[in-house]
């Protein structure tokens, strides 16, 4: 992580106070660790309903439960007191949750609370974490989805629907308050040695099911690249929406062959109810709507981030996959402890 301190300090980031919501998420905890280490970030306020698992030296932690009805006021008061400059909104689930009502409260109502607070205080910058899953996997997707493409993943389940709603809310906020620099980073499927998500759980299963006859192109992004993109968005001003993805695409068959597990092709009309049943029985890591991500294409286009933000991913999709699979193998052999870092 030493490479992050190499970047020259920007005048805007000198004494600015950075607010981070959702410090227990993967990106949040890693960013916080970098803030702790890097000198040029001076005032950091971490906000979440639970303390992060590591001790904070520089950052100040404030407990706010974003599902509570008074969260917006609490956040506003805090922002006014600490003179918030940059608000990083990362309070999103990385994995689909079975308690979808709570997930909706956390993601959609939580974002609403953040927007309400931001509307009153109007920070200089608002950065939000979104996902490329919001575009949805559909048979009539173009091979590379640009940022202007409509978000059509609503039918794929509550998990995606909530993310789309939050994304659209922040977009609307950006249109209404042009003074605030609003950056939305739509992150691709994150893989890496420290990531533990429904994707890594799918890849590490004893049997990897897939849909018979469907072999869509997939794309992954390395965890370090994601954090690097967020640091870039904090240090420099880049208003707009950006897809954060890695170079290269991989067919699903290549990914499955690389896992080295037993592959189970499923007939697609039967697979959806079957996975739905597994999901209700707590045996599957994702609901049946997510099968579409193994069926149709949902590859995003990263040229805008490269041209406007100057973000160049260090790792390709294959590198990210290799890193994740290597760790999974070591974990299987009990050579490595369970993935470090807290994940929600």
């Amino acid at each position: 992580m030493s490479s992050f301190s190499d970047t020259p300090p920007e005048p805007t980031a000198q004494d600015a106070t950075i607010f981070v919501t959702g410090v227990n998420t993967y990106i949040g905890s890693n960013l916080l660790k970098i803030f702790e280490k890097t000198k040029r970030y001076k005032n950091i306020i971490a906000v979440d309903y639970k303390r992060p698992s590591f001790t904070l030296k520089k950052a100040k932690f404030h407990k706010i439960d974003f599902t509570s009805p008074v969260a917006d006021e609490e956040l506003f008061n805090l922002m006014r007191k600490e003179r918030c400059d940059t608000l990083l909104h990362l309070n999103f689930l990385s994995n689909p949750s079975r308690s979808s009502g709570w997930a909706h409260e956390l993601e959609v109502i939580g974002t609403l609370n953040v927007i309400n607070a931001a509307q009153h205080y109007q920070p200089r910058k608002l950065i939000m974490r979104s996902s490329t899953m919001v575009y949805g996997a559909l048979p009539d997707n173009p091979n590379f989805l640009t940022e202007e493409h409509p978000l059509r993943g609503k039918h794929l389940g509550r998990f995606i629907k909530d993310k789309i709603e939050a994304d659209e809310m922040i977009q609307q906020f950006g249109r209404r308050y042009p003074k605030t620099i609003v950056t939305i980073l739509r992150v691709g499927a994150i893989l890496g040695p420290r990531v533990d998500s429904f994707i890594t759980r799918y890849l590490s299963g004893w049997i990897v099911p897939h849909l018979m006859g469907f072999d869509p192109l997939l794309q992954f992004v390395h965890e370090e690249d994601v954090v690097r993109a967020f640091i870039k968005a904090i240090d420099e001003d880049h208003p707009g929406i950006f897809n954060i993805i890695a170079d290269g695409v991989l067919p699903l068959s290549v990914v499955l062959n690389k896992t080295g597990r037993l592959q189970l092709p499923m007939f697609h009309p039967l697979a959806y109810p079957f996975v739905g049943l597994l999901w209700t029985l707590n045996l599957s890591s994702a609901p049946s709507g997510h099968l579409d991500f193994l069926r149709y294409i949902w590859v995003a286009d990263g040229t805008k981030a490269m041209k406007q933000m100057g973000f160049k991913p260090k790792y390709s999709s294959m590198d990210a996959l290799d890193a994740a699979l290597g760790t999974l193998r070591l974990k299987k052999l009990n050579l490595l402890e369970a993935a470090g870092g807290a994940n929600q």
Partner: peptide, 28 residues
């Protein structure tokens, strides 16, 4: 597009070099 609704067919055509017909893909 309708080719991509079906198993095997869409994958086969895609691996042989076919691309879904839309302005974005064609331009790229």
């Amino acid at each position: 597009d309708f080719v991509f609704h079906f198993p095997y067919l869409g994958t086969f055509m895609n691996r042989c070099g076919g691309v879904r017909a839309c302005q974005e893909n064609a331009q790229k």
